[in-house]
């Protein structure tokens, strides 16, 4: 659009939305800077999609202030939709058209679109460009979603759980695309269930739970909130393990996990005990809390 503005790309203040007696969004505030990749995290039913759909112009808010690209999305109309790209949850594409036909059709909706071939290649569907949408796998359809969001060369991208259903390598590819978009200066608002995705992609995250913001910050600042170290190993048979820290729910069965503020001392006690009993601690692991640990604690989702 040529004009560089210093104002935020998205401003949300005291946003509220209820469906009947269900208070889906209860006074949410945050802002997203131009060029920022902003993650909206939260469990199912936390209000993420409602917030995103209000920002996309699909839903009307009950109260609060919302500004997206300098205007109100509720009344932004066609001019607004020309400047944004959306990956929505569970939205079909015309099943009997080919990938290329659909991307090309959508290309015609925008004033300054990218080239069809470039976008198809960007999302890694070049080998499927002649295939009907119906025949694509779930992950491939999601990549097509991304292509349709990108074809209009948007300033702002909404990605509502963009990598759900992707296999690990497709997810890595999608991440590369998002990073590429970021380098081009696009602002991106994404929601995700995957903490590694948030960790890898976002500049800042906003954790919502039950319609309220519980934390906003960079992924590393959120991780730093928990200074403890996690010690984890396979529970040995027939011996009581010394408690060198607070026992927490571990990942898989058979593993025991503890967290401690004094990892050096705890490890010393633990290994001394193990050596004295002639035990090898299988799969011993010492780690910092992940974003997921912090997230689970913040959202009380265990």
């Amino acid at each position: 659009m040529g004009v560089t503005t210093q104002t935020a790309a998205i401003v949300v203040e005291e946003l509220r939305k209820s469906y009947g007696s269900l208070h889906a969004v209860r006074g949410v505030s945050f802002s997203v800077e131009p060029g920022e990749v902003f993650g909206l995290l939260g469990p199912n039913g936390a209000g993420k999609t409602t917030i995103v759909e209000i920002l996309e112009g699909y839903r009307h808010r009950d109260s609060g202030r919302v500004e997206v690209l300098g205007g109100d999305p509720a009344t932004g109309g066609r001019g607004f939709r020309r400047r944004v790209g959306m990956v929505l949850q569970e939205c079909a594409v015309e099943p009997y058209l080919t990938v290329r036909e659909v991307v090309d059709l959508h290309r015609g909706y925008y004033p300054k679109p990218l080239a069809t071939d470039d976008v198809i290649e960007l999302v890694g569907l070049e080998e499927k460009s002649g295939v009907r949408v119906k025949k694509l796998s779930g992950g491939q359809q999601r990549r097509l979603d991304l292509a349709l969001a990108l074809i209009g060369d948007p300033e702002l991208l909404f990605l509502d759980e963009p990598t759900t259903g992707f296999d690990p390598s497709a997810r890595r590819n999608a991440w590369e695309i998002v990073r590429g978009m970021r380098k081009l200066g696009k602002t991106i608002l994404l929601t995700t269930h995957y903490m590694d995705e948030a960790q890898n992609l976002t500049d800042r995250v906003c954790v919502v739970s039950a319609g309220e913001v519980v934390r906003i910050g960079t992924p590393s600042s959120l991780r730093a909130e928990r200074a403890e170290t996690r010690i984890q190993f396979v529970r040995p048979d027939a011996v009581a393990v010394p408690k060198v820290g607070e026992v927490v729910p571990g990942g898989e069965d058979g593993l025991i996990a503890m967290i401690t503020d004094t990892p050096t001392k705890a490890l010393h006690e633990l290994t001394e005990w193990a050596v004295a009993h002639g035990l090898e601690l299988q799969r011993l692991e010492v780690s910092q809390p992940s974003l997921e640990d912090v997230y689970l604690e913040l959202t009380g989702d265990e």
Partner: peptide, 11 residues
């Protein structure tokens, strides 16, 4: 299936 919704999000 959400196709109409998708189109509503385009210009």
């Amino acid at each position: 299936n959400g196709l109409l919704k998708r189109l509503r999000g385009t210009p």
